[in-house]
């Protein structure tokens, strides 16, 4: 997955773009077919894959993401919002 770079500034759109690329790579899906209204479950990510996604997302962002954000969100849009907010919060508290 050599498309992954370390994130500098992340907003919702950046997280969503990352999710789209990641999921399409892992599941071999067409990127264009992945919508913000899709849920992880409906895309075919079970808890094992969701956990893997969380680990790689943490590496990319350089912050820890509580798994609950991913497991409890209904849609990719919700996840992008939650993750971007969490990353911003942690960056702010870090300095």
């Amino acid at each position: 997955m050599d498309h992954v770079q370390i994130a500098e500034k992340v907003d919702e759109a950046a997280v969503f773009a990352w999710l789209k690329t990641y999921i399409s790579n892992v599941l071999g899906m067409d990127q264009a077919s992945i919508k913000g209204s899709d849920g992880l479950d409906s895309l075919g990510l079970d808890s094992a894959l969701t956990t893997a996604l969380a680990m790689d997302l943490e590496t990319w962002l350089g912050v820890e993401i509580p798994l609950a954000i991913l497991f409890e969100a209904e849609t990719l849009d919700n996840i992008a919002t939650g993750v971007a907010r969490e990353a911003e919060r942690q960056h702010a508290t870090a300095g």
Partner: peptide, 21 residues
């Protein structure tokens, strides 16, 4: 191939959510 270029990949995770499952 699965290696990320930026920093070492996280290969395992400990989380209360997973421990419960």
């Amino acid at each position: 191939q699965a290696q990320l270029p930026g920093q070492p990949r996280q290969k395992v995770i400990d989380s209360p959510h997973l421990h419960k499952m």
